[in-house]
Amino acid sequence: MPATDPFTLQSDATPSGSIVAPQQLVEALGGENLSPDLRWTNAPEGTRSFAVTCYDPDAPTGSGFWHWIAWDLPATTTSLPLGVPRDDASLKQALNDFGLRGYDGPQPPPGAPHRYQFSVHALPVESIEVDPESPHIAARFAIFSQQLASTDFTARYQVTG
């Protein structure tokens, strides 16, 4: 059988393994609070939609911190631009752990570096049938329990002092 190319995710603004770009940080840290540009390739056969998440597993909450949960991107989508608006009608976005719809960037407490995991999830359904007004756990459950595959990269950010 021929080898299949892996499902991959990249960003020019915040490459894998980098420090989160200043424009992705919240305004309180001097940023612009813009979601990074994302592009992905080689989604698995049977993909009918995508979801995007950004998660900080190092947040001192006992369960991490969700910065972005978006879903119902059509299967023809292979990228998102820098700064996806909170009211973008081409996808659904949940309230994040800041209590705001859409993306909000890093704002860790001073101390050790935090990891920010940006992921794209390939889904076998056109819609996960979750109301954006529901708590984001409903969307995350639908995404993670149905995904055909996911791809991600991690960037870091640290507040010192």
Rank of each mutant, 00 (worst) to 15 (best):
R48A: 15
R48Y: 04
R48V: 10
R48M: 13
S49G: 12
S49E: 11
S49I: 05
F50M: 09
F50I: 06
F50A: 13
F50R: 15
F50L: 13
A51H: 03
A51V: 14
A51T: 14
A51C: 14
T53F: 00
T53P: 00
T53V: 09
T53S: 08
C54S: 08
C54R: 01
C54W: 00
Y55E: 01
Y55T: 01
Y55D: 02
Y55W: 12
Y55V: 01
D56C: 04
D56W: 01
D56N: 15
D56H: 01
D56I: 00
D56V: 00
P57C: 04
P57R: 10
P57S: 12
P57V: 12
P57G: 10
D58M: 13
D58V: 11
D58W: 05
D58E: 15
A59D: 08
A59M: 08
A59I: 04
A59T: 07
P60S: 14
P60D: 14
P60L: 14
T61W: 03
T61C: 08
T61M: 06
T61E: 03
T61R: 04
T61D: 03
G62C: 06
G62Y: 05
G62H: 04
G62P: 01
G62M: 07
S63C: 09
S63F: 08
S63W: 05
S63K: 11
G64E: 12
G64L: 12
G64S: 10
G64F: 10
F65P: 03
F65Y: 11
F65G: 06
F65N: 10
W66R: 15
W66A: 07
W66H: 11
W66Q: 14
H67F: 02
H67E: 11
H67M: 14
W68H: 11
I69G: 00
I69N: 02
A70T: 05
A70M: 13
A70R: 07
A70C: 08
A70V: 05
A70E: 09
W71S: 07
W71V: 04
W71C: 06
W71K: 08
D72L: 07
D72A: 04
D72Y: 02
D72R: 05
D72M: 05
D72Q: 06
L73F: 02
L73A: 06
L73V: 03
L73G: 03
P74F: 05
A75L: 05
A75Q: 06
A75G: 09
T76S: 15
T76V: 14
T77D: 13
T77L: 12
T77W: 11
T77F: 13
